[in-house]
Design a binder for these strands. Structure first.
Lengths: 206, 206, 206, 206
DNA sequence: AATGAATGAGGGTTCATTCAT
DNA sequence: TATGAATGAACCCTCATTCAT
């Protein structure tokens, strides 16, 4: 795994001034993603991170003030990545419903390839609730934006609001947990079809 | 809070033989629910539990082998409670869709009154994944059972399956998180209406 | 194993007044011998003793004031047993040298059958040094007595003293450790012959 | 006391990379020898070791994984020391019997100066039996080697074997315990004479 | 005499963080 | 920047002993 983009850093973060410094920072972030993904926040150790990164223990504190801080940096980094891939996934889709399907499909594919991201973001609920809430608030904002576009286009009911967006996100997240993290043998298309059919028709017989 | 029913105990647990022992055990479980709910598993301490319970530190180990064990006991206890209240909530409902609405309403009401339960069960994902999975697997099993009854009654589409059940559970859980744990000012009926309308009609304009 | 004779009790010990009490006391002592023999003093627990004895935990303190006390009682009990069997082993021997051989043989046989005794007595060095020293001081006194008899009979050199007795005891104890506790496949007679030949001739070539 | 040579370290041990680290390691080992010697393994505490060493508690764990590990390190260190001094003690001796006498004399002198070593090595029987057995197995190997040289030289009987070596070691160890640890007022030469006379002539009258 | 619940001092160990080089 | 030794608060758990019945 390789963090192509460095995460947004807080003003309190220590910004590397040299190229060597930037390389070290990136190594630490990549190592931390592996360590937290493997062991979870509490079982992970700074030593584990630095030994994966191939640096000395003390070097960690040249770049981060604390274990919490690197975790936060990672969560916001990954939160951004998840949304980036969603944007890509919904490119060149016409129908609003098809966009929702594509978003879920993209999310599931991404989750299968980056299970550690799922784990890190979710554990944030108990480690750094603020960034966890921010992640889901932002995500639900995106969904809500899509719903509104669909309404404007006359494709969606015009009474959809925030609660519907949360409901859709909950569906997606739980399907992701069940069919990518716990067990990834079910075809993604089947899962997308199930969720899509609920959005399309509800669950009543016709 | 008061644990009306003692949780199922493992065969390895120490079963109190006297009435006094049973009282102490209950005090410990109640205290642990508060402690874990307040602080989360890792910040919670055995000392915190016993001082809330009004017992000596050592007394804890008369009833539980470890911090993990009482946490597990608590999760399975609460998992059961959540499902119990769901059963009550859906009594005397005729329509299958109405049953789903009632189940969500019951869950949201219960969650508002027992926020610590939500936190404990959810943190189990990172503390004792097995009991976490068991909880959601059992819960989805209940939902699936209701879906099948609705299919038999001709009320639900006959292609509903496990994935649809997971989707519904995800909706419910996220709505619970958003509208009872994070912020409980929104009327429960509004939330139920939003979820119910998706199940009834999907999200398309007609 | 069955403690045929109850050990000498301190004046501070609690003496059972009923037959039932005497039975319980014996059960506790037998259980303690097994527990200490198996696990050593520090790993042994009062719970381990009482559960082997089939009594409740509290019952232990009806008969002993402390863990140390029962250990002491056990050591002096066993110390006595070891010497008892030595007395039997040397019965009806004429030659003083033959008596020494018989004493060693008896000790080795006894040690093979009661390895836990060896362990308990030896660990006393670190748990209750006084009884350990008493055991070996008493034992060396017996050896010294035999040496003196041998001297009187003109069979032994007349310059033998305490140090020689300690040397002989050391030989015996280490041979016991090596050839009965660590590994009991070597024939006892071979071991006795080796020690006996040293006492008879020393180690020089003739 | 000062550990002139650092003990053989396990591959799992943490090897200090700086001079300061090596000093700290040595301080810890010296302190541990005192602490274990004074109090015995179970009564000794890591806090006791670090406060004697003048370091913080945590520093202990920079160099050892556990209390057991430092004890093991200490036993093998001391085991080696005991044998080293034996080698020195027997230098420039011609007669094989004189070598045995010198070995015992050296051992007794060493034991009088380093009583804590005796205690630590012996307690290993109950704390880390493997290293205890290794110590005595190695020691008996040395004795056996000397016996064989004596046989080759025609000085010793040619039927001496392992059991005789164990017998001699037992003599030495018990004499050491009695006349250096328990009570060190008896002249070493008297003790050596007693043991030597047994080896020379046995105990029979001539 | 017997029971089993209750007590709490005590100690080993972890590991994030700081410090000196 | 990088290193790795040093720090010490924090906490889980054990278990001999006491207590109430």
């Amino acid at each position: 795994m390789n963090t192509s983009t460095l995460p947004a850093r807080d003003s309190t973060d220590k910004v590397p001034r040299t190229e060597r410094g930037r390389r070290t920072l990136r190594k630490l972030l990549d190592a931390a993603a592996l360590e937290f993904g493997d062991k979870g926040f509490h079982e992970a150790s700074i030593t584990g991170i630095t030994s994966r990164a191939g640096t000395a223990l003390g070097t960690f504190y040249t770049y981060f003030h604390s274990k919490d801080e690197i975790f936060r940096a990672l969560v916001s980094d990954m939160s951004e990545k998840v949304r980036q891939q969603a944007l890509q996934a919904i490119e060149r889709r016409d129908s609003a419903l098809e966009i929702e399907r594509a978003a879920l499909r993209g999310f599931l594919q991404f989750a299968r390839e980056h299970k550690e991201i799922y784990r890190i973001v979710d554990e944030a609920e108990f480690v750094d609730p603020e960034s966890y809430r921010l992640h889901y608030a932002t995500t639900v904002g995106r969904i809500l934006g899509r719903l509104r576009k669909g309404i404007e286009a006359g494709e969606f009911r015009d009474d959809l609001g925030e609660a519907h967006a949360w409901a859709i996100m909950g569906m997606n997240v739980f399907l992701g947990m069940r069919y990518t993290i716990w067990n990834d043998e079910t075809a993604i298309d089947e899962v997308v079809a199930a969720a899509g059919s609920i959005l399309e028709n509800g669950i009543l017989a016709r």
